[in-house]
């Protein structure tokens, strides 16, 4: 799953990589940037994080040309009234001004949404993401917005609001399987409305390619399956499997509640709620021919 989303074969508009102190997500972000630089004409990287330096240096060493870096971490609250990007900058307008003319497909990568989410309201952050991905104002089409978020810095409310806005959430978790460097829980909302929830382990090569993706199955679910497979018909004292001949013999038996054909049809012909009285005189019954009431003077 994660391999398809990173390579772009599975479409996703807003991707969130949520990491924590135990499991770093920056490598996954870098693989997204590398992949996006191949698919789109221009990648705009916004650095809000103090560790954004790492991302920048890694990109330099790879020598990718079409990534434009916008640093913001030096003056987040714009106390110096500097020209760069700050927390309250309209990112949409900022990027629009800096687009190379004629570009058709752009991707926006935000290295760490965390400063934005701590200093501004969650709804502002969600709106920023949504505008970047869907707004008509950015004339060239934004293919994808990828963001990193340090999940352990924020409260549940902000996180759930951010997750609601994103179409894919990778939550990095500590590894549990051997031979893998990374592990993440992915929730991906497909365009059709289907939701995929999966835990996968994978490796990332030196060129930031996602390889060796394998699903990590929950151990507890697999255990009890085999034990209940005993055949209940094995040691029976009676015969359950009938031959055709025996079946025919069985169908000949008249059961106590079966009526003769005529009477059955008569009952079925009635609609629900109506009734009819049938009288079957039994053998011991002495039926009196005479009118039992003829001595009465009515």
């Amino acid at each position: 799953m994660i391999g398809d989303i990173v390579s772009g074969s599975e479409n996703s508009k807003i991707v969130l990589i949520e990491d924590s102190i135990d499991a770093n997500g920056r490598n996954v972000l870098l693989s997204y940037i590398v992949s996006l630089s191949k698919i789109t004409e221009e990648v705009h990287l916004l650095l809000f994080d103090v560790r954004g330096q790492d991302t920048q240096e890694a990109l330099k060493s790879l020598g990718i040309q079409n990534v434009k870096v916008h640093r913001a971490s030096t003056d987040l609250l714009q106390w110096d009234r500097s020209q760069g990007i700050g927390l309250h900058t309209d990112i949409k307008a900022y990027i629009r001004e800096r687009l190379s003319p004629g570009t058709k497909s752009v991707a926006v990568v935000i290295d760490s949404l965390s400063p934005l989410l701590t200093h501004t309201s969650p709804s502002f952050t969600c709106k920023t993401l949504h505008e970047l991905a869907y707004s008509e104002a950015l004339r060239s089409q934004v293919q994808q917005v990828v963001t990193l978020l340090h999940g352990d810095l924020h409260d549940d409310n902000s996180l759930s609001l951010t997750h609601h806005t994103c179409t894919t959430v990778h939550k990095m978790v500590p590894i549990t399987t051997p031979y893998a460097m990374f592990c993440c829980n992915t929730i991906h909302k497909k365009v059709s409305g289907k939701v995929v929830k999966i835990r996968e382990s994978f490796n990332i090569t030196e060129e930031y390619q996602v390889t060796e993706v394998a699903e990590v199955k929950q151990m507890s679910q697999n255990l009890p399956a085999d034990q209940n497979q005993l055949d209940p018909t094995a040691n029976l004292t009676f015969n359950l499997s009938l031959s055709d001949k025996e079946k025919e013999a069985r169908s000949q038996v008249i059961l106590p509640y079966t009526y003769n054909k005529e009477r059955q049809e008569c009952v079925l012909a009635k609609s629900v709620g109506e009734g009819k009285i049938f009288y079957q005189p039994d053998e011991a019954d002495d039926f009196d021919e005479e009118d039992p009431d003829d001595d009465l003077d009515i």
Partner: peptide
């Protein structure tokens, strides 16, 4: 939803 400037029922 957050796009209506709503923060899950909380004020700013």
């Amino acid at each position: 939803s957050p796009l209506w400037d709503e923060c899950g029922g909380l004020a700013s």
